[in-house]
Design a binder for these strands. Sequence first.
DNA 1: TATCACTTGAGAGTGACTATCATTAAGGAT
DNA 2: ATCCTTAATGATAGTCACTCTCAAGTGATA
Lengths: 154, 154
Amino acid sequence: MKDMNELVEMFRERGYRITPQRQCVFKLLQGNTSHPSAESIYREARKEMSSLSLQTVYRTLAELVSLGELIPVDLGTGTVRFDPSVEVPHHHLVCRSCGKVSDLFADLRPPDMPEGYAQDFEVSSTEIVFRGICKACMTDGEDLGEREHRFSSK
Amino acid sequence: MKDMNELVEMFRERGYRITPQRQCVFKLLQGNTSHPSAESIYREARKEMSSLSLQTVYRTLAELVSLGELIPVDLGTGTVRFDPSVEVPHHHLVCRSCGKVSDLFADLRPPDMPEGYAQDFEVSSTEIVFRGICKACMTDGEDLGEREHRFSSK
DNA sequence: TATCACTTGAGAGTGACTATCATTAAGGAT
DNA sequence: ATCCTTAATGATAGTCACTCTCAAGTGATA
C-alpha cells in the first residue's frame, strides 16, 4: 500500500475528495500487519473521530480495494479482513482457534494447475492457506481473540 | 463420505435417530460433487419433502461435519459449501465471477512451512485455492450462477 | 464565499446462519 | 400393537456482517 501522501495524491487525481474520515482510515492501515476487519478499523478510528460511521469505513476500504491498494482476504473466519501488503506476494496462516491471520513471507512457489484442468479454468491467482493453531492458543488453552465461527472444520 | 447404509449404521451407533429428514439430506449428498450450500441442499430436499425446514438441514450438515463425513469449505463466496469427498485429499478452483467451486484431484504436494514459522504455528492442514474464471463464465460474458459477493478482489 | 457534486451518517434492509422452545415422533420397553 | 421417554423437528425470533437509500453536510473549484 502506498504511503499517506501518495494515497492523497492518488485520490485527488481521480477526483475523489480528501476528507478527514478517509485520512483517518488511511492512517490506520499504514504498515498494519494485523489483517484488520472493517469492524476493528472502525473501533480504532472512533477513538480519534467519534462521529465516524461504520458505513464510511466500509466505503473507504472498498475504494482502496478497487484501486488495488488493499487486498480483501476472506479465509472463512466470519469477516473479510484487509491486507495492505499488496507489493510483496505472500501467504497466510489462519488459527482455527482464535481466527487470527498471520502473514507468511516466503517464496513458496505454488504448484501449477495440471494440464487437464487448465483448459476449463483460467487461473488469476493461487493462494496457499495454512490452517492450524497459533502460538498464543497453544500455550493458553483459553482463547482470547475473535473465534472462528460456524462450520469451522475442527 | 460413507454410503447410505454406513451412515445410518453410524448414526444408530451413536444413539442418533434415523429420521426421514436426515435420510433425505444424506441421499442428496451421496456422490455430490457440486459443493452445495445449506440453502441449495434445502431447495433440492424440499422437492421431495416439502415440510423440511432449513434449520434441520443446517443441523444435519453440522452433524455430518462433526462426524468427519463432510468437510465445510468457506472460500469467501458468501456461503459455506459442503464437500463429501473426505477420503481423497484435493484442492479447489473458485470462479470469481459465478462463485462456483470445483475440485482439483491431483497430488499437488503443498510446500512445507519454512522453519522460522514452524515454531510459532502448528499446521493441521494446507489448502491450495486457485481463483480465476470458469469455462462457463469465459464463454458467456453473462453470469448465471451465484455470484461472489462483497469485497471479492476482482 | 458561493456553488454543487461528492461524501457522509442514520436508519432500514438483506442473507446466512444460530438460538429457543413447544410440538412431534423415533424406537426401546411393555 | 401401544406406551413412554427423550431426541428431533419446525416455527419464530435473533445476530452478525455487511449493503442500500437518501437527506443533510462539506471539499474544492470558480
